[in-house]
Design a protein around this nucleic acid. Structure first.
Length: 425
RNA sequence: GGAGGUGUCGCCUAGUCCGGUCUAUGGCGCCCGCCUGCUAAGCGGGUUUGGGGCUACAACCCCAUCGAGGGUUCAAAUCCCUCCACCUCCGCCA
């Protein structure tokens, strides 16, 4: 939810923001009209209601003739009040619906344009030169089979396409990555969390996942309950309807949870292996802080991701995502994309968004400031999305015989193993 | 799943039977001030949140808010219905 005051006072800012995202600005005028209608309906209702209250008190004191006369007036008034109240609710709902579709204005620093207009901020690590090393790299699926780590056939048999089993070294790898990520975040002062992954509409809506993104969300049949696509949802909603002590900010959490995505609209995309799947586990960072601190906090989350990817010894780049490619809630987003040898491309491994007060406004999460309460800022960032991390690790650290070198930092979490060896020829 | 109970402005609490000066009581905490060698105690005042009007986004006025949503009524914290959460007991279960 954008700031209603900003919409009313500076509609041109919102118009410009819409344009920067490549969206129509006409919604701003619709919203302004709806806001005016809403305020008119409030005044109409409140005037009638105030009169009703005054008369009501007179009724309580009046006797005989006088009372009968008053009752005649108040009875008619009661119907008007009821109608005015209904009209007010309707106008407020109409306003809310329109404003809810307006995304968070992108940060000034965010590049304008769409998906391809990102700016590369940094490249880290070195790509393997398999030609120089004298062998053709295998893709993660083949490596996963050789190691006995990934089983997509049985995943499909039991659950359908885009499902998988992690077995032996694959399962060990997930647990190692999760433990290592949680350790890193814990040491950085994050509070560890295991959140629920079935949530009510409020949590989904509040984080902005029931808008255009609704198609990607699993809904439980016959229930008003959703499976989350990221623990950002239960983490953001954790403090909903709360006023957080200014002294308690920033609040930093790190959660481990499964994530569920329908991947509607991505048919035929990334169908091989476990790069794009309906379910995966993820370790996610989440911060509640002040609006003023949010930009610095965004850099901190990014720094955590960079430190993490460095430990995995991956080759990757950091991009500043363009306005048109931001989610509904994000004001700015940095993605870390790892080099995937089999694809010859950089692909997203982690992502961190500054949602400023957009989600907090929807979820009613505030803090007390000089001038009353103000919405806090929320930020999220991936530490590790398991399948993509496994893809990158297997492909990046593979050796000619199909074995995979374990990055040094990960070894203590893998029972000291330095290499994962193929189990079959 | 069954039976019963509870839900009041940070926390605790009065009020609900029997609708109307409830403009929601009191305590704790917190904030401001007074008093005071210091501290404690004491005294006085303030302290839900959201929205609207008017405006300097102040002050002031108004409306809503007693778990949520409906209903009855001139009038609802109070009566009725539905839902939600929590507690106790029973049943079932990883």
């Amino acid at each position: 939810m954008i700031d209603p005051r900003l919409l009313r006072d500076e509609p041109d800012l919102i118009r410009a923001a819409q344009t920067k995202r490549g969206l129509s600005a006409s919604v701003v005028d619709e919203a302004l009209a709806a806001d005016e209608a809403r305020r008119r309906s409030i005044v109409a209702f409140e005037e009638l209601r105030a009169e009703q209250k005054v008369l009501g008190k007179q009724v309580a004191r009046a006797q005989g003739e006088e009372k009968t006369a008053l009752l005649e007036r108040t009875k008619a008034l009661a119907a008007e009040v009821k109608a005015a109240e209904a009209a007010q609710h309707e106008a407020e709902e109409a306003y809310r619906r329109i404003v809810a579709t307006i995304p968070n204005p992108a940060a000034d620093a965010a590049p304008a344009g769409g998906e391809d207009d990102f700016v590369v901020l940094e490249e880290r690590g070195t790509k393997r030169d398999f030609a120089a090393e004298g062998f053709e790299p295998r893709d993660h699926l083949e490596l996963g089979r050789m190691l006995g780590a990934i089983d997509v056939e049985r995943g499909a048999k039991v659950s359908g396409s885009r499902f998988y089993y992690l077995t032996g070294p694959g399962a060990d790898l997930e647990l190692a990555l999760v433990n290592m990520a949680m350790d890193q975040a814990r040491e950085a002062g994050f509070t560890t969390v295991i959140p629920p992954t079935l949530v009510k509409p409020r949590a989904m809506e509040g984080t902005g996942f029931l808008g255009q993104a609704a198609d990607d969300v699993y809904r439980i049949e016959g229930q008003d309950t959703y499976l989350v696509g990221t623990s950002e949802v239960p983490l953001a909603a954790y403090h909903s309807d709360e006023i957080l002590d200014a002294g308690s900010l920033p609040k930093r959490y790190v959660a481990f949870s499964p994530c569920f995505r329908k991947e509607a609209g991505s048919h035929g995309k990334d169908t091989r292996g476990i790069f794009r799947v309906h379910w995966f586990d993820k370790v996610e960072m989440f911060t509640f802080t002040t609006l003023e601190e949010s930009e610095a906090e965004h850099q901190r989350l990014l720094a955590q991701e960079i430190a993490w990817l460095d430990k995995l010894e991956l080759a990757y780049r950091v991009i500043d995502v363009a306005a048109g490619d931001l989610g509904l809630s994000a004001q700015r987003k940095f993605d870390c994309e790892a080099w995937i040898p089999s694809q010859g491309k950089y692909r997203e491994l982690t992502s961190t968004s500054n949602c400023t007060d957009f989600q907090a406004r929807r979820l009613d999460i505030r803090t007390r400031g000089e001038r009353g309460t103000t919405p806090v800022a929320t930020l999220n960032g991936t530490l590790v999305a398991i399948p993509r991390a496994i893809v990158a690790i297997l492909e990046t650290h593979q050796q000619a015989d199909g074995s995979v070198r374990v990055p040094e930092a990960l070894q203590p979490y893998l029972q000291g193993r330095t290499v994962l060896e193929p189990v079959t020829g």
